[in-house]
């Protein structure tokens, strides 16, 4: 925390969860200490419980109709608004990312800037994805026939372990831009930038519940998320390699769409592609006769 030029004690922030547009502590009353790369105490983070996770899923399900029902133009504007709000928190997040990831302030700020730009990139997709991923199908008969992508529903995200902000943004934005809602498990060891990202989302006209952010023990929460019957998709990018197979197995209980983790965490600095958006959309095809 930066020192005050005029002296005096800085006011510290309580790092909380983000569920349904509000910022509760864990209902369990638990927290855990978060340290910097070199072991210094940074803050206590809320240790979300299974009940917190289930509450988050309820919020995400409730928000789905509103968010998917919004026009694509509107969703695009909200995502762009997230970028605007994030830009305003640049300095704070520069400090938090530097502390979390053991980077110099300059390198950390570069990651924050990339995260802002990533929101802008995805914002533009909101009203373009249907044209790129959908289309008119030339069937052999007197029918109008078109396909369009629709959101999968509630998507669980195990956020990247290493990249505390840019990685988080790179996996959450593609989930929600198409109209999904998300329940996100932040990096267990680097959760603080995610909490601040939640505060940004909370002031960005994003309807409450579209993104829910939980901090805590991934090994405790991820199995509940993976087996939850009201979760439709699962991004396992941040799952430990030895746990991913078990989570994927649990996800089969209701045929979740699973985005598997690669052998190493992706390089989030590379330009994004369609892949993460297409992983959590369903193609709907509509037929109607043509005639007089």
């Amino acid at each position: 925390m930066p020192e005050r030029p005029g002296g005096g004690l800085p006011v510290r922030k309580t790092y909380k969860l983000f569920i349904g547009g509000t910022f509760p502590r864990s209902e369990s009353g638990r927290s855990y200490p978060v340290t910097s790369e070199d072991g210094a105490f940074l803050a206590n983070a809320a240790m979300a419980s299974k009940k917190d996770l289930r509450d988050a899923v309820v919020s995400a399900r409730r928000a789905l109709g509103t968010w998917w029902g919004a026009t694509a133009y509107n969703r695009g504007q909200v995502l762009y608004r997230v970028a605007e709000m994030l830009e305003g928190r640049r300095s704070q997040l520069g400090d938090e990312v530097a502390a979390a990831e053991g980077l110099g302030r300059r390198a950390a700020l570069r990651l924050v800037d990339l995260a802002v730009d990533r929101w802008v990139w995805y914002a533009g997709w909101a009203d373009k994805l249907a044209q790129v991923a959908g289309g008119v199908n030339p069937v052999a008969g007197p029918y109008a026939n078109y396909s369009l992508p629709e959101p999968t529903g509630v998507v669980g995200v195990v956020a990247p372990r290493a990249s505390s902000l840019l990685g988080l943004v790179s996996v959450v934005a593609p989930v929600i831009v198409s109209g999904n809602t998300a329940v996100v498990l932040a990096s267990e060891t680097r959760p603080l930038p995610a909490v601040t990202m939640g505060e940004v989302l909370g002031t960005s006209d994003l309807p409450g519940g579209v993104v829910n952010l939980l901090t805590g023990r991934t090994s405790e929460l991820a199995p509940v998320l993976a087996s939850h019957r009201d979760v439709d998709g699962l991004d396992l990018v941040g799952a430990e390699p030895d746990e991913a197979a078990g989570l994927e197995m649990a996800a089969a209980g209701n045929v979740k769409r699973v985005l598997r983790p690669g052998p190493v965490e992706p390089d989030w600095g590379r330009p994004p592609a369609l892949r993460r958006m297409l992983a959590f959309v369903e193609t709907k095809t509509v037929w109607h006769p043509v005639g007089i």
């Binding site: 199908n137 030339p138 069937v139 052999a140 008969g141 029918y143 026939n145 396909s147 369903e282 193609t283 709907k284 095809t285 509509v286 037929w287 109607h288 006769p289």
Partner: peptide, 16 residues
């Protein structure tokens, strides 16, 4: 995944 409006059980290789 497939909605048939005023028809049903239509299939075509061009139609997902």
């Amino acid at each position: 995944g497939v909605v048939w409006a005023n028809t049903f059980n239509r299939f075509d290789p061009a139609s997902p």
